[in-house]
């Protein structure tokens, strides 16, 4: 059942209208007078509508660069990035992003943070309140609506960041190791929460992590990346029914896939 393909592009692609993100031959080079660093080379991949895709790889493999380019925060040196049929030329509300560092605006309350994007859209007060209430509830922070960031734990801050992105109703949610700084228990409950939200909201999610278990638990498909130069080493189908009700049920298959990925990353 394990699909391991040498070239991800060789895999039969889904129909064009099902593709949300289409990236081909992406390259990124950082150049200074003395050095030339090839952060990404020939990276091609796609993400389907409503899919949960993870980029997995060691630090320095360029996975965050891929995400920042998708967000429009960095420009590619080469190749094309198309999201929802449009070439990415800069950041946009259509591509929400959650960062590893806590990016709550500390001078705003939880509610005002979630409203930030809606206010920029000049949405009416009533509409704003409705959407904000809904997402406060989804991430379970109704009681903290009027708290400031400094009163919240790390997990709560990331919940606000997720709610803030989703409130904008983005086409795609980009997540850059959002749970990387959390303790094990919090991380797990955040993963459960994220999966619930994904199932409910049907948002397309691109998720970055270096944690194999996290990638296998969350995603449908995994792109394993390798460094120097940053590139996609392998595409892995992770939609393997390994879990039931958030519990690992297919331990054998899980171990097999995990071992394979570990060997990929060690090589």
């Amino acid at each position: 059942m394990l699909t391991v393909l040498k070239d991800p592009i060789a895999r039969p692609r889904p129909k064009a209208e099902d593709i949300k993100i289409d990236v081909s031959k992406l390259g990124k080079v950082y150049e200074t007078k003395k050095n030339r660093f090839e952060a990404l080379k020939d990276v091609s991949f796609y993400v389907q509508n409503g899919e949960f895709v993870t980029f997995l790889g060691p630090s320095g493999c360029g996975k965050s660069t891929v995400l920042r380019i998708l967000a429009g925060l960095e420009e590619p040196s080469d190749g094309s990035v198309v999201v929802s049929g449009k070439e990415v030329t800069g950041p946009s509300v259509e591509r929400g992003m959650v960062f590893q560092s806590y990016t709550l605006f500390p001078w705003l309350t939880v509610r005002e943070n979630i409203e930030f994007g809606l206010k920029l859209k000049k949405m009416s007060k009533k509409e704003r309140a409705e959407i904000t209430d809904r997402y406060l509830k989804i991430v379970g922070l109704e009681r903290f609506a009027d708290s400031y960031g400094k009163e919240l734990s790390g997990g709560m801050k990331q919940r606000v960041a997720i709610a803030r992105s989703l409130a904008n109703n983005p086409d795609v949610l980009l997540m850059d190791e959002p749970f990387g700084a959390l303790d094990a228990q919090t991380k797990q409950s955040m993963q459960h929460l994220l999966l619930d939200i994904w199932k409910k909201e049907k948002t397309t999610i691109v998720f970055i992590t270096h944690d194999i278990d996290e990638a296998l638990f969350l995603s449908q498909r995994i792109y394993v990346m390798d460094a120097r130069p940053g590139r996609i080493a392998e595409e892995i189908n992770a939609d393997l029914n390994l879990y039931k009700d958030n519990e690992l049920v297919n331990v054998d298959k899980f171990m097999k896939v995990k071992k394979h990925i570990v060997s990929m990353l060690q090589h």
Partner: peptide, 21 residues
């Protein structure tokens, strides 16, 4: 924090809004 600015861009802020907001 640079990410604070990046986050506001992805929430739809234009340059001038990033400065003042």
């Amino acid at each position: 924090n640079r990410d604070l600015l990046s986050a506001s861009y992805t929430l739809g802020a234009k340059r001038i809004q990033v400065i003042f907001k």
